[in-house]
Simulated assay, not measured.
Amino acid sequence: MKQFTDKVVVITGAGSGMGRGYALAFARLGAKLALNDYDREGLEETGTLVRALSDKALLTDVFDVGSRGHMYDFATRVKAEMGNASVIINNAGVSGEGLPTWGLSDDSYERVMQINFFGVLYGTRAFLPQLLASDEGAVVNVSSIFGLVGTPNSSDYCASKFAVRGFTESLMVELEESPISVHLVHPGGIRTNIAKGAVKGEEFADKYLKTEPDDIVEQVIRCIRSGKQRLVYGHQARRIWLASWAMSLEKRNRLLFREMQDMMDPEHYSILRPGA
């Protein structure tokens, strides 16, 4: 896709961070917007900012993307009120609890997987028929650099982002000869509130979340226009991407351990040193 004027662009997780950045960028490009977030206040604020930029149609809906029924109802509403979507950006996501595997609850794995993976799955499947009916369009699924390598205290989050990667890469092959482009985004350290509420979340954010959301939004739009399928972008993203394929797993794991050791609370790891 080269232009977005009067095209219907659907964005999940639009209440803050990258999602809000996508909404404002596409508003400036003249798109009609269908926006979702679980945070009503944040979504309303994004809507106000969008209306200040554009007089194009705007639809907002507050729901959990991990709810299959709500996602499909959203797709039905978008088609009825705005017409077929041309772009779906599955951006919504949450962090995990920030604990090692043995310290995590089963509920955390289920919650993170439901939102981060199944939210992407439902969003893609709910809107793909509209893109195909339009005979053009783009699917943008947001993974993470933690969908390239496994990191400590993030096995719930990494599992979900690796799942997004696998699903999206498979979809790319399936749609190879279609008019639909598929894009997989691996953000690095983007300055959002994703780590809020996790153990050592503030320390993690201060150390790693350095790149402004608008910067990666600009790159994603370039990818949609050019057809580039993978984007690895943000603070330390290139370094992690290189490590994901250029280093042996053993060497990479040692590097990640040293890099992130100060995020690993010794108390949580005392189980590995009985009697110490």
Rank of each mutant, 00 (worst) to 15 (best):
M1D: 03
D6V: 04
G15V: 05
G17T: 12
A27P: 13
R28L: 15
L29R: 14
L29A: 14
N36K: 05
Y38S: 12
E44L: 15
T46G: 01
R51M: 13
A52L: 15
L58C: 11
G69W: 01
Y72F: 13
D73G: 08
A85H: 01
V87C: 01
N90T: 00
A92D: 02
S95Y: 05
G96Y: 06
G96M: 10
E97Y: 08
P100M: 08
S105P: 11
Y109H: 13
G119R: 01
Y122A: 00
T124P: 09
L131R: 05
L132V: 15
D135Y: 08
E136C: 10
G137C: 08
S144C: 07
G150F: 13
P152F: 14
S154M: 13
R165V: 11
F167I: 10
E169A: 06
S170Q: 11
I180V: 15
L184G: 09
V185Q: 12
H186C: 07
G188E: 08
G189M: 08
I190P: 02
A195K: 04
K196L: 11
G197F: 01
F204G: 02
L209N: 02
T211A: 03
P213R: 10
E218F: 03
I224V: 14
K228M: 12
K228Q: 15
R230P: 04
V232W: 05
W241S: 13
W241N: 11
W241L: 15
L242A: 08
S248T: 14
S248N: 12
E267I: 12
E267L: 14
Y269L: 10
G275S: 05
